[in-house]
Amino acid sequence: MTTTMRRSRLHRKEHQAALVFVAIPVIGFLLFTLFPLIFSVYASFTNWNGISAPVFKGLDNYTKMFGDRYFLKSLWNTLYMMIGIPVGLVISLALALAMNRKMRGTTFFRTVYYLPVISSIAAVAILWQWAFNGDFGLINQGLSLIGIGGPNWLQDTATVKPALIIMAVWKGLGYSMLLYLAALQSVPRYLYEAAALDGATAWQQFRHITVPMVRPVTFFLIVTSIIGGSQIFVEINIMTPTGGPEFESATIVWYIWQKAFDNLQMGYASAMSVVLGLLVFTITFIQFRLNRRNQFSID
């Protein structure tokens, strides 16, 4: 009798303690995520300059958006720059395969490729800005060694997006490579052994064992890269602070930021963020549906 009493009291106390622990992130979420989210949805229906009281304007901001050529252009630019995602995945898988082999210096190379990931994006952007300088930049100096006169990367409408893509791929390589490496190392060796016994070539092994086995990682990387890629901002703002030549490098988040903080149009900016949020949500949702169809597991 007494023991059960004690146990239940202990249980209750521990339960209470647990609730307090759980409360911290929940309160954090409500305060810093859910509330701003709901508020920005509300703000998107208002004319609000960010410092005055918002004035309700219905769907004005939303209708304005679809006639705003810079909104459409920045949306297009953002999509365009996602070309870097598949490119980055292919290269990082190749690198991971190379790193997975037993050879000297892999630790060194892993560090080299991972370094950009932990570097501050602002510092990296400034470095690349110098590298892309049309006049004395590292890249054009390198190109001139093989007799190519490089373009003025960040000032030329034709090269500004590729330049930013190159940088994004470089920056993200280490992270994807590391995840692929972990995935590769957890592929059971017996699968390869069995395949080899059956006479599978290296390519067939890669195609039918490696690729499907790392698929969860690929999926994870695609989803997170698209979410991250749709929010690319810092490097744009540092490398092309005016949105690039003829607005060629302005991304959607950069445009939202400019409207909100430079041009006192917080309401309109909120509306654009809501649209962006919905787009990202939709794309991610579709990805999860497609992925469910391809899912399989080994016991």
């Binding site: 300088n133 049309g134 006049d135 004395f136 003025n152 000032q155």
Partner: peptide, 14 residues
């Protein structure tokens, strides 16, 4: 002025 498309102040400033 220095070569084509050198609107970047960085260059001319340097």
């Amino acid at each position: 002025t220095p070569s084509v498309a050198e609107a970047q102040t960085l260059d001319t400033y340097q």
